[in-house]
């Protein structure tokens, strides 16, 4: 499955957070940390995104330690590909922006 669509910011950060296996709360913390506190995932948003991404095959549930209530998720090969495609797209956006507006901060 190639992704012709841009990922939403939430999707991008959730996938990025799952580069290492995380449980739900871990994803929230990692996303907040990566974005310098800018992106705070709300519980319903994250939960819905996790189930859509599982359906798409981008992430999967780790075989849980029995008795553990917290579900841990990890990225699949497909999820990693989606993330890399998005990174390429973002690089193109940044490169073109810098080329035209100038890379200087005072631009």
């Amino acid at each position: 499955m190639n992704n012709d669509f841009a990922l939403t910011e939430s999707t991008y950060y959730i996938l990025l957070s799952l580069y290492e296996p995380q449980h739900g709360y871990g994803i929230m913390q990692r996303t907040e940390e990566l974005s310098g506190g800018r992106v705070r995932l709300a519980a319903g948003t994250l939960y819905g995104a996790l189930s859509s991404m599982s359906e798409k095959g981008w992430i999967q549930l780790l075989p849980g330690e029995s008795g553990g209530r917290k579900k841990e998720y990890c990225l699949t090969a497909q999820g990693l590909l989606a993330l890399k495609n998005e990174l390429d797209r973002l690089k193109e956006l940044v490169a073109n922006g810098e080329k035209i507006l100038g890379g200087n901060d005072n631009g």
Partner: peptide
């Protein structure tokens, strides 16, 4: 801290 159940437009629309 702030408490919301939805943090982006897509999930609000899904709801």
């Amino acid at each position: 801290g702030p408490f919301e159940l939805f943090s982006d437009t897509q999930s609000r629309l899904d709801h």
